[in-house]
Amino acid sequence: MGCCVPVVEAPQSPLIRARELKKLYRKGVFSRKGFPALDGVSIEVGRGSVFGLLGPNGAGKTTMVKIFLGLVRRSGGEAEVLGQGCEEPSVRRRIGYLPEAHRLPGYLTGRQMLRLFAQMSGCEPSEIDDRIEKQLALVGMREAAGRKISEYSKGMQQRIGLAQALIHQPELVFLDEPTDGVDPVGRMAIREIVLELKNAGVTLFLNSHLLMEVEMICDRVVILSHGKILRQGTMAELTPRTGSVRFELKSTPPDLGALLAGIGGALVPQPDGFELVLNDDAELDRCIDRLRTAGVSIRAVQPRKLSLEEAFIGMLKNEGGPR
């Protein structure tokens, strides 16, 4: 990365490491009481992964991100980013950040703003022009780059905001609601950019309410609630198979119930087939055999997984319900 200060790290060392991270927002200057936004959070984020951060409003997601960026001081625990303390300004040369509901300087044009942040991030002056054009092309803002940011629509501000987060080619990027206010086409474009970055080896930390988006992009997810980690793991770990299998048929036989009697659990008819809870693969084989013997044409067989949304809501319900 051109403008970054090289720091020697162990090859497998995590880019982000937090241990027993705590943040208490005090009620007054001298008060020891307050609202615990983070209460002993420990995570590790590996290089090159896309890490999702989920949780209901007030769970402490943004606070955690801001601690890593040095925007919020931690009340306890340890936090390291790229092998350095979060409070160290120099570490931020290697970090990009797109905040939620950001406000970019409206008195600058898109191009001036990118130049300002590139310079502030310590980029080589000779490289800045190229980088600006590259980022503008990446986010599709070349045409509007000469206009003042105050004249931009919400979607345009989000795209130019993404460009400022990436202008210094960071190793680690925090994206807080990156698709907020962006139309579906723009959202897809942002998803593609995120995947491109992932392929380029950039570590991404995604904070989003759009669970489908997180499910599509992230490798690992942490679910926070009340400032604590409710669950963390890979996407496969968080969205296990339900045991239910969906059969798509060319035509549904009228005696489907009788045909599959004694196999699996409850049968749920669907417009183009049915869903059946099966206990194991042997039951799946028997089910297919019976259908084929009866001359039923099978178009697709799909084991059903829990969606992230279902898993997320389920976890929150178990914990005491979403707020």
Binding site: L69, P89, V91, P99, A101, H102, R103, M120
Partner: peptide
């Protein structure tokens, strides 16, 4: 202001 400070203070400048 919220939003403006996040962008500016997340840069490697004190």
């Amino acid at each position: 202001e919220k939003g403006a400070a996040d962008v500016v203070f997340s840069r490697p400048v004190s």
